[in-house]
Design a protein around this nucleic acid. Structure first.
Lengths: 163, 163
DNA sequence: AAGATTTGGTTGACACGTCAACTATCGCAG
DNA sequence: CTGCGATAGTTGACGTGTCAACCAAATCTT
């Protein structure tokens, strides 16, 4: 492991990095504001509702749901609390495991989800897809792929080869 | 303005969109965790400290600072409150405008900032730059540029041509 | 079966963001 | 000078995220 002293960045590298991260952030917040305005849902709400709407009988075990959308259990629990207050979902005891909770989509939740999809897609189109040529779109795909691969490499090939 | 009914997305478009936004988000949170671990600073702290460290006499009017880093005044105010508790900055009355506040970098804040830069750059290198070939880096630059340009177009060419 | 460990889920504390309301000063039009 | 709108900054409420602590039921171990 070298000491890696020369970790300076060129001005160009720094600018590309900042543009990348700030642009993504801006788009994220723009989309979230539009979702809120158009349908009263946050992107978090949307992820949860999407998963439930596709689930068998519109219900899912809490931890399954968490894994499915890649959230930590505690985050999901907090979020479900807020969604439950708005009656978008309901929590009920799980019949097969008395520790567990089943998250169930309510009628109201389903309606809200359905109302939101079209504006949601439109927003993605307008804030992201419309901005890019087909070549740039392909480049975006490649870029994300490269970044994600690098992430998993760093996780896997990382330290601590597991006891 | 057409009714834009066919706002469906292809599976590929949707995948590219999600990969883009999720990848950026993952990198963002990875970087933020590393910053926290390495130097006890958040990226927000870093932005504030960076601006102050470059400012004349290490001080800046609050609203100037807000504009400089592109935050809303209220966000800055909350954040400064937290940073002041940790004694990274100080707030003092502005001599020329008694409404105003000057934000001053403390010794401790400056030290924290200096300690953080190297790990910060290293993290950017490792999580972002190292993942990309020179061509991909250029593509990233182009991509962000296209997205930002589209954003400003939508803002400017937007509704409400100002009374 | 008793005891230890893992798993499922909630909770509380806190950082961070946005929005809207509020106070106080500034600066200008009359 | 008065009065009024713009500006500076703070505050409170609330949504969102993370972390660590916690309880209880399930599962493994001997």
């Amino acid at each position: 492991m070298k000491s890696e002293r020369r970790n300076r960045l060129t001005a160009r590298e720094l600018r590309i990095w900042r543009d990348y991260i700030e642009t993504a952030e801006t788009i994220r917040s723009e989309l979230s504001a539009r979702m809120q305005r158009d349908s009263g849902l946050s992107t978090g709400d949307y992820q949860v509702l999407l998963a439930l709407s596709e689930a068998d009988r519109h219900r899912m075990r809490s931890s399954t749901l968490a894994t499915h959308i890649g959230w930590q259990r505690s985050r999901l629990s907090h979020h479900l609390g807020r969604m439950e207050r708005r009656e978008l979902i309901r929590r009920q005891d799980c019949p097969t495991d008395s520790r567990g909770a089943e998250v169930v989509l309510t009628e109201q939740g389903l309606r809200a989800f359905r109302r939101s999809t079209s504006p949601h897609f439109l927003a993605i189109r307008e804030t992201f897809l419309d901005a890019l040529t087909p070549e740039q779109l392909a480049a975006a795909a490649e870029l994300s792929a490269a970044l994600r691969e690098h992430q998993t490499e760093r996780k896997d090939g990382g330290h601590d080869p597991v006891p």
